[in-house]
Simulated scan of single mutants.
Amino acid sequence: MTDDEAQAEPEMWVADVVEDGPEKGAVISREKVKARDLTQDYVGKFIGCRDKELDVNYGAKIRKIQHFEDGDVPGVSVWFTHSALPDGRPARDDRSHVPFDFEFEIVEMMTW
């Protein structure tokens, strides 16, 4: 297996889930994707995020992706919604504009 093939394979692992819900564990898959490679197929998927203050990982759902090839700041804009956090902070909308080579972590989770 080449390095490119290994990088294309999503990582998977089992983890405990934050204690606020009925779920106790999850199988998590993580795929690293360069911004330039984001397509409309990624809309509805989750970006992996971390809140250092609470020491929790969470997902932000991708709502829109737009590539900007020209202009003063070429790159990719991604609109997403951060999940609500266990300390009571509600879900919130956000947008990031990043260079084409910025790497996102796309996270999928199956809980039990």
Rank of each mutant, 00 (worst) to 15 (best):
M1W: 13
T2D: 04
T2I: 07
T2Q: 05
D3W: 12
D3Y: 13
D4E: 12
D4H: 06
D4Y: 10
E5K: 13
E5R: 15
A6C: 11
Q7F: 14
A8S: 15
E11W: 06
E11F: 06
M12D: 14
M12F: 15
W13I: 00
A15S: 12
A15L: 10
A15G: 04
A15I: 04
A15W: 09
D16N: 14
V17H: 01
V18C: 15
V18W: 15
D20G: 04
D20R: 08
D20K: 04
A26E: 08
V27F: 14
I28T: 00
S29T: 10
S29V: 05
R30M: 13
K32T: 10
K32S: 02
D37R: 02
T39R: 10
T39I: 04
D41Y: 00
Y42H: 15
Y42K: 06
G44K: 02
F46R: 00
G48Q: 13
D51R: 02
K52E: 07
E53K: 07
E53A: 15
E53W: 03
V56Y: 01
A60N: 00
A60T: 02
K61V: 09
I62V: 14
R63C: 12
K64G: 07
I65V: 15
Q66F: 04
Q66V: 08
Q66W: 04
Q66Y: 05
H67F: 03
H67I: 10
E69F: 11
E69V: 03
D70Q: 10
G71P: 00
G71M: 08
D72S: 03
V73A: 01
V73C: 03
W79M: 10
W79R: 06
T81M: 12
H82A: 08
H82K: 12
H82V: 03
P86S: 13
P86F: 05
P86R: 05
D87L: 10
G88E: 09
A91D: 02
R92D: 13
D93G: 13
R95Q: 07
R95S: 01
S96M: 06
F100G: 00
D101V: 09
F102V: 04
E103N: 02
E103I: 12
F104C: 03
I106T: 01
V107C: 13
E108R: 13
E108L: 11
M109I: 01
M110W: 13
T111W: 00
